[in-house]
Design a protein around this nucleic acid. Structure first.
Lengths: 249, 249
DNA sequence: CGGTACATTGAGAAATTTCAAAGTTGGTGG
DNA sequence: CCACCAACTTTGAAATTTCTCAATGTACCG
């Protein structure tokens, strides 16, 4: 039903303590999101972090594991999901570079969900105490975090409406549209094109559809000249129409 | 499509500044949830609140309105929902006595959702500054709030799984089961019976089904001897079976 | 005693899933 | 560089779930 990487048919999961090479200093998302705020004004007085890398399709985190710290994805995409006993799963949110794994659950010692790497993912783990301290000392950081938690909540509400009230076409369009907005925000959407490294299975798990129906819906979007999704890339052909289908209003 | 109370066909919405009669002092939920924590240890040094009462089926709050403070429901049930342009709506969460309207969005000056009274509702409005101050001064209160926000988040995740992956029967059973757990927690579920004042239309809006199909599912639950839902009341007949259907595991 | 919202039932339509079989793609080792 | 393998994508046809439309029955409120 799904290409599981938790019982690895592929080479074992790659997790290595990161060398100091690729670091937050050179991160292009420094100015935004939680990371940037966490590092304070000057760039000095850094929080000490551990870095890990995980191969695509492997799990960053499995439900119930003990969390070693506050996790932020530095590079690549990940998906937060819940696994059902019948083999199906629901992707709860898509995590992009600079995102906390979960803003509201930032200090939870363990999560009820799992996290899978969509692409190869590099992520940072910050010590709980360190982050808690800064959050307490720095009102701006606290504010940033409150914003993120509220945004996460709004996103959950929007997804609830998508899954509860909207058709397959609308859900898929909504996913594409949201990814487009996030890509544009970070300047990664030149010329009506942007990356969407999720497989159809993953899009299906996100939208609550089957991969087969997801495929049919994507075909329909292609045939009607709205957008072309494939090979990890989206080409927007009729942005207005996509928006019309996607938006809740 | 839905029994709208925003353009009232019924008598005008009843909103009156509450007299000091029915007060937090006599509230049976004092010891629990956010309210209790807000009032500190001794019961002295009260936060000054405004109280309002709203008739069943009328709106406590309409999306986009300016919030006058932190809102907590004292008596009755309410439903947080998003209204769609096509007339359908999705109920995002059910609010029971002692609950914040929205924990994560506690300080937001306006919400993107609306809130409808399921039964007659009495609710309190606490000044933002007051709550913010206490939240800052009292680590225990902050902790309580963090817990509530995290719980809200977990609940949203569970609902996402329900709406994305589960059948009509499972969603309805899940609703009934969750309400049962909450009723039991507060000691309102004697003898396998508890209140469920939602109409079938509201249950439908909650589960993302049509009211007609909701009715059929409830009939099925009755016919198979699982539980009997109606007239604002649930009678549990086979708790184990209900749990089996409802639980995600 | 109406009247209005709410609940129930039936029949047919629509959306989505399931099952099954072929194509395609991308990465790996020879 | 090629061949192969595994995962991914695409397509068709039938089954299932859920919705829509419509009519009838029921409960509650003034």
């Amino acid at each position: 039903m799904l290409s599981e990487a938790s019982a690895p048919p592929l080479p074992a999961e790659i997790i290595r303590p990161a060398m100091a090479r690729t670091r937050c200093d050179t991160c292009r998302f420094q100015g935004r999101n939680f990371c940037g705020a966490l590092f304070g004004d000057g760039g000095r007085d850094r929080v000490e972090a551990t870095y890990r890398t995980v191969a695509a399709r492997h799990n960053l985190y499995r439900a119930g594991e003990t969390n070693e710290g506050v996790q932020i994805v530095c590079e690549g995409w990940a998906a937060r999901f819940l696994q059902l006993p019948n083999g199906r799963r629901q992707i709860l949110s898509v995590i992009m570079p600079g995102d906390l794994i979960s803003a509201s659950a930032i200090f939870e010692r363990q999560f009820g969900f799992s996290v899978q790497a969509v692409t190869r993912v590099r992520h940072a783990v910050f010590p709980f105490a360190e982050v808690r301290g800064r959050l307490h000392d720095d009102p701006a950081l606290l504010d940033t975090w409150l914003q993120l938690a509220a945004a996460e909540h709004r996103d959950a509400d929007r997804r609830l409406v998508d899954l509860g009230q909207r058709t397959a076409l609308e859900r898929i369009a909504s996913l594409i549209f949201q990814v487009m907005l996030r890509s544009e925000e970070r300047g990664d959407a030149g010329d009506g094109e942007f990356m969407l490294p999720m497989s159809q299975q993953q899009m299906a798990d996100f939208t609550g559809l089957t991969p087969v129906h997801t495929c049919r819906v994507l075909s329909a979007l292609r045939k009607t000249g709205v957008c072309d999704v494939g090979h990890g890339l989206v080409k927007i052909l009729d942005r207005a129409e996509l928006q019309r289908i996607a938006e809740i209003k």
